[in-house]
Design a protein around this nucleic acid. Sequence first.
DNA 1: ATGAAAGCGCTAACAT
DNA 2: ATGTTAGCGCTTTCAT
Lengths: 337, 337
Amino acid sequence: MAQSKRPISMREVAELAGVSIATVSRVINGLGGFSEETRERVEKVIKENGYIANQAAKSLREARTRTIGMIVPDITNDFFSTLALQAERAFADEGYSVLICNDENDAERGEHYLRTLISKRVDGIICISGRTTFDEDEVPGNVPIVYVDRFPERSADIPRVISDDLRGGRLATEHLIEHGCERIAFMTGAHSAISVQNRGIGYEQALEAHGLAVDPGLRIELKGRVRRFQEARETLSEVINSGVEFDGIFAMNDVIAVGALLALCDAGIRVPEDVKVVGFDDSIYASIATPALSSVRRFPEQMARHGCDALLSLIEGNDVELEDTVPVELVMRESTR
Amino acid sequence: MAQSKRPISMREVAELAGVSIATVSRVINGLGGFSEETRERVEKVIKENGYIANQAAKSLREARTRTIGMIVPDITNDFFSTLALQAERAFADEGYSVLICNDENDAERGEHYLRTLISKRVDGIICISGRTTFDEDEVPGNVPIVYVDRFPERSADIPRVISDDLRGGRLATEHLIEHGCERIAFMTGAHSAISVQNRGIGYEQALEAHGLAVDPGLRIELKGRVRRFQEARETLSEVINSGVEFDGIFAMNDVIAVGALLALCDAGIRVPEDVKVVGFDDSIYASIATPALSSVRRFPEQMARHGCDALLSLIEGNDVELEDTVPVELVMRESTR
DNA sequence: ATGAAAGCGCTAACAT
DNA sequence: ATGTTAGCGCTTTCAT
């Protein structure tokens, strides 16, 4: 039946059912210690009045909120949204809600969100951000945190689930080399997360291992905070116009790779004939692009799963391994045929 | 300085500063009624002990959480993630956090989320879901709700921000007709949201207006809960193999349109020469696809903005218009050249 | 300018 | 099997 104004409280349920508030609590939480008849009476009142427990009160009392905070760079990116979707699903299965925060790679926003989450007394935080540079001894509120995909430089003992970016960078670069590329550009962000830096290291290692020089002129940096394919397209167009020569491109992610594909197309450069391209993430963009994009596949579902499991362990007071590296694999498509 | 265990409470701050708890509250909330000296002392204690207000307590006391719930079908879809990102940003600017819930078009999950959000006493809900079929007189907790993009059939007096789907469907279909198409397929979901149904109505209206028959055989339905381009690709491939003839496709969104593009390519059917395709949303997929996809552009940023503004108004106790329709426009690209 | 105290809606320990 | 009560950490009267 109807009830329109402020939701009723447990106390009111108790009064309506003619029992004490403690009994209502017992019934609701199935703790036993009440007769079948009482149970029915209480549940009837609850149903008829549309009683819904006040979690704010419960949270205060129990000192836990059954809420997880999730800081993410930009939910609009396919990789992060997949991570977020899976994490949200996993937490929901365990009875947790998730607060989502897009820090858009902005350190200030990240830190602000972190404080907000702690203030809201979330039970744990999944952090996909390398920007939360709170001081070591100032980790506030000692909330359990798990980093996923990336982490700050000095975050000593905070567990993390990362992908094997270094290997990914090597795989991509070697693949290009094996297909005859000798001047391979690396498209990346200007101030990129540690995960991306590692892809760059893998790239350099592969070059060196094959006797190729690391040419700083082939490092193409995007300045935007958030990865948009238009920026990549424009930046690469400029590079092409400036006369830089290359026969391969390794992009730090698929969004950038797709922007590159478009710039190459604009310039009449054929892929894969003239230039071969490899992306990263094997996101939907890689399958959709023409030519279909070779990409280093990651496993966001698995990473999310591991991150959630780790965080839940932490919440329950257990230890977890500090570093959990999820493998990557190269997916070959037309862009490097 | 350090503080590692349980965060300290206001009471402890008060004791450390040698003032009453009320004074600490006044200082924190800048309510005045304290000396400059007191303020400094309190703030020093706060800083040195890393005090962070407990919002659970605050929420209980103030009967508001500064938290918004957002129910979304699937954050992984570019349109919804854009909506979510913008909404999260707008709410963050106003001091609200947002709980994200992906109901994956599942009525049961949607309703469960709704109950959870109400239980958590969110101050308002942005609902992108037509599945929350709670009974009219059972709208629980009378939380302010605003629907965005879609809404349940019987949700009489709940405000909504929608796009002009009917017009979008007409625009797309007329565009195809004007480019010579006579047998236009409509790719949609089996049990789609009202917004999508309206696109279908627009499609039919356009056909009829141009003297073309609405052929049920040209209605291609996807069964999956969530839109994935692979499903669209496979389904269309089957349709092609079954010998159905068509010279145009209007897809209910870009994800499906892109799947269609791939199926056509698989079958050696040229776009736009043999078949022309129009998508919906003008998402990143449309720009990336080859040929670039003509699409009905929507304005998720604007929709998010309107939805947030409406919800905030509602929260403040003001009225808002029941139906806010955001326009659409056709973006022409290669797929209908 | 400051403090004491009530109370938000719950849970849990302790009666009975 | 059921009730009474303290208290979680705040805000907010009402005193002083």
